[in-house]
Nucleic acid binder design. Structure first.
Lengths: 132, 132
DNA sequence: CGGTATCCTAGCTGATACTG
DNA sequence: CAGTATCAGCTAGGATACCG
């Protein structure tokens, strides 16, 4: 793995910014994270390649990276079957089940959306009253 | 603005991939998008700089870019007061209000989270039965 | 199958400058 | 204030190749 930067970008002067606390948003805000969680919630367990297929466009590099991050945050579990060919099952943790509900709502909202063309661009210019 | 790439990355061979349909996830999945929406929902209207301050780390370039994308998707409205200095107010559209509810749940979940250290890394290795 | 290593491009930030 | 423009520098993600 590389994972060198990790978004931090702290100034050279700042002292030991070993701030591990950071919110869960740090991982949720990354690309694919929500979609992964959402698709993870469609089945009890899911395998790497299966998950990859549902996420059209993701690279295995990033999928593996995200799954690790989610795992570290305690949202995903990983079960390895030491066989050849390998078999790995990913699943949501209990704590992620709460999130699951929310995600499903979000997914339904996203589906319900669909319509209304891409460029509405609602911009209003407030007119000033003329000085009478 | 530049906005050249737009994530598409289609091969030079592919024919006229003018696929405008794409789901709302296309914009929601981008960095900062959810956070912007979330913070937008804390007030009825909010100004650019004010919003920027709540999003620690974002650059004005990207904030402007995201707001435009959200606007195009019909989630955000923009109201310009032609004054000097300029004043611009951003707000959620009615359609985004549904999303707002979900986002608030998500935010509460994220806050409720907080605890349990960063590296639990629940990985299970399934053991094989020995051939008796 | 489920990754990791490598290389290269796309995306984001920071700084600075400029405008209405 | 609310941007846009530009450039440097670093990070994130995609494609491909390879391995146990």
């Amino acid at each position: 793995m590389k994972t060198r930067g990790e978004y931090s970008s702290m100034k050279p002067g700042s002292i030991s910014n070993t701030c591990e606390v950071m919110s869960i948003w740090e991982v949720l805000d990354k690309r694919w994270a929500l979609l992964i969680l959402k698709n993870l919630s469609t089945k009890e367990v899911i395998r790497f390649t299966e998950l990859k297929k549902t996420l059209s466009g993701i690279s295995s590099t990033v999928l593996a990276e995200r799954l690790l991050e989610l795992q570290r945050k305690g949202l995903v579990t990983k079960k390895i079957y030491p066989e050849i060919p390998p078999k790995v099952e990913y699943a949501l943790t209990i704590r992620a089940k709460e999130l699951e509900v929310i995600l499903k709502e979000l997914a339904r909202w996203a589906n319900r959306w669909k319509s209304t063309g891409t460029s509405k661009t609602m911009t209003t210019i407030a007119v000033r009253k003329k000085p009478s």
